[in-house]
């Protein structure tokens, strides 16, 4: 780790002001990516702005027909939240499948969504449930937010304050864990809301999280297993390939995990 100045703002306004005031700053949420990066000396920011003491980023609330989760809410809090568990159990389930207990008790939803790691879990939930990313400047519809791996619509100095999830009528997440890291080798989130079905895939593509539109089309007439079983496996073009999974294997897993997510959403 290189030396940096550490800041611990007490309000979101202070945090935003600090970002504007300081040169070369990095924002620390749960630190599950940033801290290892700093320790490996792969980043050398002059200032570290820790959001850990900002109270308004810590709430989980229901606003109308949406669940709104503050950016600094930890994965473990989402997994255990009675509100999330009753309104969107699939989201609590997803949070419970992230990393291990240490990661879940430090990592935050805002950090995950801002980082947009191609193997992170939350981006799939956001995309499938048509979430809105609420920032210090605006509200970003999810379809405009994720722009390829580690790339988002966030501008310089713009902080996520919360993520708003419209409550789906059905949803489920099926995750295939990387046997080493426990990141998603492939994760598929399916959600149905007002007749629209969305199938979002994380971990698989070298373009980051994406919607599997063929599967969505197949499920459009009726949300059931049969049309997915009839569907052709996705092509392996643009799939990630590494020591853990070839592009072919990932494409196969996208198909299998989609099937499992649909079955789970149907309560099977």
């Amino acid at each position: 780790m290189y030396a940096f100045d550490y800041h611990r703002p007490q309000t979101l306004r202070q945090a935003v002001n600090l970002i504007g005031r300081t040169e070369d700053s990095k924002v620390l949420a749960g630190g599950q990516t940033l801290i290892p990066t700093l320790k490996a000396r792969l980043a050398n920011p002059a200032n570290l702005i820790d959001l850990g003491a900002v109270p308004e980023l810590r709430a989980i609330t229901q606003k109308g027909k949406s669940i709104v989760i503050g950016a600094m809410v930890r994965h473990a809090e989402v997994a255990e939240s009675p509100l999330v568990k009753s309104a969107i159990p699939a989201l609590a389930d997803l949070a419970h499948l992230i990393g291990d207990p240490h990661v879940r008790n430090r990592g935050t939803i805002g950090g995950s969504v801002a980082n947009n790691d191609p193997a992170a879990d939350y981006p799939a939930a956001c995309l499938a449930m048509n979430a809105t990313i609420i920032t210090t400047k605006r509200k970003i519809p999810v379809d405009q937010y994720f722009q390829g791996m580690f790339t988002t619509a966030l501008e310089e100095g713009e902080l996520i304050s919360a993520v708003s999830f419209p409550i789906p009528s059905r949803a489920a997440y099926a995750k295939f864990r990387n046997p080493a890291s426990r990141y998603a080798l492939v994760g598929v989130f399916v959600a149905v809301k007002s007749g629209e079905t969305r199938v979002a895939v994380t971990g698989a593509s070298n373009g980051g999280v994406y919607r599997w539109t063929e599967a969505e089309a197949a499920l459009k007439p009726r949300f059931s297993l049969a049309p997915i079983e009839r569907l052709a496996k996705p092509p392996s073009t643009n799939m990630n390939s590494d020591i853990h999974a070839s592009a072919d294997y990932r494409a196969h897993l996208v198909y299998v995990m989609t099937k499992r997510a649909v079955a789970k959403a149907l309560g099977r």
């Binding site: 291990d100 046997p179 080493a180 890291s181 990141y183 020591i243 853990h244």
Partner: peptide, 26 residues
């Protein structure tokens, strides 16, 4: 038997040099 493997690439770089890539039983 199931997940641990130290893999070097052709240049002799250890590809599995962290727990991100070296699988440990849990």
């Amino acid at each position: 038997a199931l997940i641990e493997n130290a893999i070097y690439d052709k240049e002799g770089q250890l590809v599995t040099a962290s727990f991100m890539d070296y699988g440990m039983p849990r």
